[in-house]
Nucleic acid binder design. Structure first.
Lengths: 246, 246
DNA sequence: CGTAGCCTTGAGAGAGTTCAAGTGTTGTGG
DNA sequence: CCACAACACTTGAACTCTCTCAAGGCTACG
């Protein structure tokens, strides 16, 4: 169950830097700030379900939220994973509709929530709020396009490598961190079966990636990057063929 | 080469009904209308390239435009296909950046184009324009999520069926139409190899879908729909197992 | 200590790709 | 008008990747 906290001065100050809020002017943010509710969530807590009418706009402050869809055959597919700074359901504040996917906490997390009606009302008066929403959804668009490209052209192994890489802190050539959620979830996000993911992890051990139960140890980020780009395939040397004339 | 036409009264009137424009008020549309340029494009004509700074917002009036990405290994992936009513690059009017994909005419087509700066300027003054942009990008978001779900859970055959279904006029139980573009493009859009697509088409013949060089004949849309939902798999009867106790 | 859930591993089947050859269409120059 | 090349598409066969089914191991929790 969510614990409701008042948006304290400290809270709103740290929110100001998150993309959705950073893109709007001071006066707009001030108006919104009073309506922001901060919730602490536990894994499995539901933010909204596919088919629910849109009620709020969300921003992740800490932890991970999964966006999932139920397929006609009954199983769930993870469409996206949101973490610190990501906002979602913003566009539904513009013209309220039902959610086309469900959102659920994937780890312990802290999220900010604002009533869609409030955001919508302000956005209709203040262009900077509407533009902030458009800007945030542009970021989502890019992220989804990356995902589509990846699904279409990369092998499962490459996608797995890419995913681990995305969890590594930027600029570090080696790192150790905890997996924020289960491997079942990762598999669904990457569009592979759990067994396939497990086998991919096993292969990665040979390039210095050690995946434990909840912990990942990356010895060399560069090797991981090569794997993510399918190097073993595209690196196949291409000889210049000089056709014998006649 | 594009043929530039003036936005005549007839043109702007028909544009008014397209989603991006339908979502804005009369006065905003009037202001925009003067800056709309209508172009006739031939297959292969480039609208923008990945890496180009955003210069315009586009709306497809007739025909098809493909949005493609170049992968690190050099081949191109079709991310999306736009047709009548679809707008794209709208969000780039908000905060100009470079395009993260290229757009190219996939068939003979007619598109409307407005300078991004013009749209941006108006959107900063009139919230309804900013909201129309947000609304249009919400539609894109949904479309991309559908695509991701499809890539993750459906087989190539199902995706092919789904795609043909999307080309059929709604509500018709049988139809005949021309393919608006080549099969190579379709394959790339669906994330399969051309040979695989060809074999999928061959399989569809058994359920009354006849795919010729440029023409498709669908005898029964319902059968196609069943195929698109992977019926042959999920329809496998699940028996209730009563485990023998002890 | 037993059970349940999550993860790994193995073996075999199936889906999709690759490579290679072949068909058909279109456009071009002789 | 035909020969030719270029291009788009199809088909076959072998191979690779990913999934399915099945069993077993590890961890957490009562």
């Amino acid at each position: 169950m969510a614990i409701v906290m008042s948006g304290s001065a400290h809270d709103t100050h740290s929110l100001r830097g998150l993309p959705l809020f950073a893109a709007m002017g001071d006066s707009s943010f001030e108006r919104l700030a009073g309506s922001i509710r901060i919730d602490n969530l536990h894994p499995g807590d539901v933010l909204f379900r596919q088919g629910d009418p849109a009620a709020s706009v969300f921003v992740v402050i800490e932890g991970w939220v999964k966006l999932v869809r139920l397929t006609s055959s009954g199983d769930e597919v993870v469409i996206r994973l949101f973490t610190r700074g990501h906002s979602f359901a913003e566009t539904l504040a513009v013209r309220p509709r039902v959610h086309s996917a469900s959102a659920e906490a994937a780890s312990e997390c802290v999220i900010a929530r604002i009533a869609a009606m409030t955001v919508g009302r302000i956005a209709h008066e203040k262009p900077d709020v509407a533009l902030a929403i458009a800007q945030a959804s542009d970021a989502s668009l890019s992220a989804l396009m990356d995902e589509i490209e990846s699904l279409k052209v990369r092998s499962a192994d490459a996608r797995v490598a890419q995913f681990i890489l995305s969890l590594c802190p930027v600029g570090e050539s080696s790192c150790v961190f905890r997996l924020p959620f289960g491997k079942r979830l990762i598999a669904s996000y990457l569009g592979v079966k759990q067994e396939t993911l497990s086998r991919s992890f096993a292969k990665l051990r040979s390039i210095g990636i050690d995946i434990g139960r909840n912990e990942i140890r990356v010895t060399n980020t560069a090797l991981l990057e090569a794997e993510a780009n399918d190097q073993h395939r595209s690196a196949a040397i291409r000889y210049e063929i000089h056709p014998t004339p006649g």
